[in-house]
Design a protein around this nucleic acid. Structure first.
Lengths: 359, 359
DNA sequence: AAGGTATTCGGGTACGTACACGTAATTTCT
DNA sequence: AGAAATTACGTGTACGTACCCGAATACCTT
């Protein structure tokens, strides 16, 4: 006698077994239909598919991943955390978090970091990725043309890819996860507006030497201006581009700027470099201006805390990374529909709520 | 010859098998140690435990859930969505989302809804839950004493429980997931402050007949007042309690209130009933006041959109539900440490960013 | 020392699926 | 018609773990 009795026949089967039983075939045949491999006559195929539909069969994911001992390889291609900005540290944390959650399901994540000031490094890494056997890609398409070339190759190889932080419209990505820039500028304008009187003056400051990323900043600026246009507010907007991003250069420019416009009531900095402005305001002992900038970075938060920055706009960079990996996982493993465009919420961070913010 | 060759002996085993091999025992024995069941001598137990540590063995969760055909039952006890407020619809959605994600891992979620105006309904359901065989509980402890009685019983039965939306300090819950009320009030005051001149006037309005939940509102009020105290702002705060929550009663009270205080510049409503105030302001053709309230509810957002409400404070009720269930899952299935206090971020919603908000 | 009882451990089967291989059925060719 | 090629389907083994059952050994009794 066997050690363990088989369950008696009254037991309800499920999964492939039940389908096989109903269709009067073996589980092997059912399996072939499910993975639509060859070797099944159209007739029995139809029968089995109908049964699958009727039962609303949901494959057991655990058993599936257990049995198919395959490992899926995801490649991540994002900028390195530069000394220009620590921004990309956050998405990386999210990516690693997702990785640790799903590595037990047989997923490996390879990370590649390119230099934001060096297109070549980007191109080289794309080549490297395409050589390694990869099943999915998470991409930050900072260099537009080069990214387009890369995604086209992915399309050809049938490798799904997810874009984060900036979009590459018209491309056949699995999805885009990131900010909607225009509205974040628009929102900033609303906040700035509380400090600006009728016929007042506000400064927009772009601090960036990365020409490629400039459309990013521009979108925000457009949103910012649109708010005042929509609300028919009479005011003066002074716009300043600063391409030398080291602090002393920025400080020098700010000195001139504030000298020329002593009546400015608010400053909108279109990226995380708001920290330099805050520092200058502090050191120059300026009268209090409303200061709005971007991103939940350590230095920025410090100036938020001591009141020099009033609002930080942030769009959960960490979650972007997390969701990017998870989108690949959901598509390839769980075979679940994923949202084509996942715009991150536009979060407002102040002195009062920063402690509770989840990046 | 067998159909499939065994892997040759050079193969690297992992999991229990490898442990068993190293310890010179069978996997059965290893299994007993892992689940510290009886039947293993102290000596071999030690050996095996050392090997487990050395290998940093991580059990394969899929295989585990597959093999142990057990089903875990989670009970959810939260208020029904009343016509007083649709608030509890959101956590429910999050709960159901979590449920659908983990049901394939053998987890069932039973939902019980009590009437916020009827303590007895709460108590009855706790009894029902304790009778059914349950492995974990998600609880909204609206009625404090009754909840305490319930959680004590859970403690005795070794059933872990997670609290959402309001805490029950000093209890041995697995974790608390919800808002930190004081700071949300504090933040509201900061926002209100932009509209209030020196020596201005602001109204605080509590609209609620649920006496039990009143400490909730009070905490927010304290935070609100604390902001002005901390910033040494001279202003007048008028506080009003409205216990009749139907619109006409509220409208009547507001009429008197605004008549008595025509110089008020801002109104802070301590919960989601801000909708009534917005409606009254609209209908009474009042001059523009800054209006701040709580929760991303449909009606509230409508008034946000048309400008009558300036800011909504919201703390992701849906995510609270989601995380509540997931916390149980992480603890009981993944055996992962969970944060004891997960305070939700304090989100600021405006006309400009509500479209991107994730509740 | 023989028998009994605890204690400790090995081995087998199952979970639901994937896939390689084998065989039976059918078609195609000569 | 019979052989060969093709197509259609069945079967066994494996994935890593849980858990049951029985075997083996150790420890007592008398």
């Amino acid at each position: 006698m066997p050690y363990k009795m088989k369950k008696d026949s009254a037991v309800e089967l499920n999964g492939v077994k039940e389908i096989a039983r109903r269709a009067n075939v073996s589980i092997g045949t059912v399996d072939r239909v499910i993975h639509n491999r060859s070797g099944v006559s159209e007739k029995t195929k139809k029968i089995i598919q109908d049964i699958i539909k009727e039962l609303d069969y949901q494959p057991n994911i655990m058993a599936r991943r257990l049995a198919s001992n395959k490992v899926l390889n995801f490649a991540v291609l994002i900028p390195a955390e530069s000394n220009e900005t620590e921004f990309w540290a956050a998405p990386l944390i999210g990516i690693e978090q997702a990785e640790s959650e799903i590595k037990q399901y047989g997923i490996k994540v390879e990370k590649y970091f390119f230099d934001l000031n060096d297109k070549k490094s980007f191109v080289n890494l794309t080549k490297k990725i395409l050589k390694s056997s990869i099943d999915g890609v998470l991409l930050a398409p900072s260099f537009i043309d080069e990214s387009l070339a890369f995604t086209k190759q992915c399309d050809q190889l049938q490798i799904p890819y997810v874009l984060i932080n900036s979009d590459l419209p018209k491309q056949d990505s699995l999805c885009y996860i990131g900010p909607e820039l225009f509205h974040s500028g628009y929102l900033s304008a609303h906040l700035a507006n509380y400090a600006i009187r009728e016929n007042g003056k506000v400064l927009i400051i772009n601090i960036s030497r990365e020409i490629d990323n400039h459309h990013h900043l521009l979108r925000k600026e457009e949103g910012f201006r649109a708010y005042f246009a929509d609300h028919a507010k009479e005011l003066t907007i002074i716009k300043e581009d600063i391409r030398q991003t080291d602090y002393s250069s920025v400080a020098a420019r700010l000195k001139d700027l504030l000298h020329d416009h002593p009546d400015a009531e608010a400053i909108f900095v279109t990226n995380s470099r708001v920290v330099s402005v805050a520092r200058y305001l502090q050191e120059s002992d300026q009268k209090k201006l409303l200061l709005i900038g971007y991103d939940y970075l350590k230095d920025n938060v410090a100036y938020l805390k001591n009141g020099l920055i009033d609002f930080l706009i942030c769009q959960k960079p960490q979650e972007q990374g997390y969701r990017g990996i998870m989108a690949l996982y959901q598509d390839m493993v769980l075979k679940v529909e994923v949202e084509k465009n996942y715009f991150m919420p536009i979060d407002i961070i102040t002195k009062e709520n920063y402690k509770f913010y989840r990046n």
